[in-house]
Computed example of a mutant assay.
Amino acid sequence: MEKSAKIYIAGSGGMVGSAIVRQLKKEGYTNLILKSSKEIDLRNQKDVADFFNEEKPEYVFLAAAKVGGILANNTYPAMFLYDNLMIQNNVIHQAYSTNVKKLLFLGSSCIYPKFAPQPIKEDYLLTGELETTNEAYAIAKIAGVELCKFYMKQYGCNFISAMPTNLYGINDNFDLTNSHVLPALLRKFIEAKQNNAPSVSIWGTGSPKREFLFVDDLAEASLFLMKNYNDPQTVNVGTGEDISIKELAETIKDIVGFDGELIFDSSKPDGTPRKLLDVSKINSLGWKHTTAVSEGIHKTIEWIEKNNFSVFK
């Protein structure tokens, strides 16, 4: 991928897309196409077709998606399925129609069966039932993976897909009603410390285990795959290490410096018991994460403070 190549980052305003932009700029790529959701509605077929025909990008990072945590996925399943299917279908098809050299589709580890053997290998996809709390989002992402595979099979397109584990970091969503667990906990503990609260309430029992990847590591992996991977089978991107929600909460509590009590609300859903990716494939290709969870949390807090906590509003 030449440094002057025309590269479109779909979703460049989001956490993942903005991290990919940072990584591309860091590595000297200068011809980046950045369009906000206000400038182009990726759910609109004509708008996307017009955009691709006008801009004619050579490479595409498809990081645009409607995302949210358990509550948002449970509350708006039709919206999650529809919006994500439309975004993916439009971008992938127009990439084919305008002869894009290569496309990377970013999915989510929630595509794998709820009770998949751990750690989860890439070939466990479509071997069991999904977790009901994020089923709609997972179905959309599975469709995106399969679409890339079949465009490669039928048309010879170099469209690849990667499945990141749970992400967090700079430009994350900290809205308590629809964010993921790590940013939600970060906000809860920071605000509890600021307000001298006696305790922090946490959804579920604290027993589920999750793997967390700092978003800048994913950006680095995405560029690595764009340069080095050309296979129709999806590839997992993660750390290969997990931590219980209870341990995560205690880690954030210590880093933030909150002295109060942790209260686990077992009336709220836990979600999937465990979700650890097998990352031996991407490791064998030559990429490995570099940011430990505690370091990533520190970097995220630094960014929050630099923005004067405005990301909480």
Results as ranks from 00 to 15, higher is better:
Ala5Gly: 07
Ile7Arg: 11
Gly14Phe: 02
Val16Asn: 10
Ile20Val: 15
Val21Phe: 15
Leu24Met: 09
Gly28Pro: 03
Ile33Met: 13
Leu34Lys: 12
Glu39Gln: 15
Ile40Leu: 14
Asp47Gly: 12
Phe52Cys: 05
Glu55Val: 12
Glu55Cys: 00
Leu62Lys: 01
Leu71Pro: 04
Pro77Trp: 12
Tyr82Gly: 01
Asn84Val: 05
Met86Asn: 10
Gln88Ile: 15
Asn89Pro: 00
Val91Glu: 04
Val100Met: 06
Leu103His: 07
Phe105Cys: 05
Leu106Asp: 04
Leu106Gln: 09
Ser109Pro: 00
Pro113Met: 02
Lys114Gly: 00
Phe115Tyr: 15
Gln118Lys: 03
Ile120Lys: 00
Asp123Glu: 14
Asp123Gly: 01
Leu126Val: 08
Gly128Ile: 00
Glu129Pro: 13
Thr132Met: 10
Cys148Ala: 09
Cys148Pro: 02
Lys149Met: 08
Tyr151Lys: 07
Gln154Phe: 12
Phe159Trp: 10
Phe159Met: 08
Ile160Leu: 11
Ser161Ala: 13
Asn166Tyr: 04
Asn173Tyr: 01
Phe174Ala: 11
Leu176Asp: 12
Asn178Arg: 11
Asn178Thr: 08
His180Asp: 14
Ala184Arg: 11
Arg187Lys: 15
Ala192Cys: 10
Gln194Pro: 01
Val200Leu: 03
Thr205Met: 07
Phe214Met: 04
Ala221Pro: 04
Ala221His: 05
Ala221Thr: 09
Ala221Lys: 09
Phe224Trp: 05
Lys227Pro: 02
Lys227Met: 08
Val237Gly: 08
Val237Ile: 15
Thr239Asn: 08
Glu241Leu: 09
Glu241Pro: 00
Asp242Met: 01
Ser244Pro: 05
Ser244Arg: 09
Glu247Met: 08
Glu247Thr: 04
Gly257Ser: 03
Gly257Asp: 07
Gly260Trp: 11
Leu262Asp: 04
Ser267Leu: 09
Ser267Ala: 11
Pro273Glu: 07
Leu277Ala: 03
Leu277Asn: 02
Asp278Met: 00
Lys281Val: 08
Trp287His: 08
Thr290Lys: 15
Ser294Glu: 15
Glu295Gln: 15
Gly296Met: 00
Ile297His: 10
Ile297Glu: 05
Ile301Glu: 09
Glu302His: 14
Glu302Cys: 02
Ile304Pro: 11
Glu305Ser: 03
Glu305Thr: 03
Lys306Asp: 11
Phe312Lys: 11
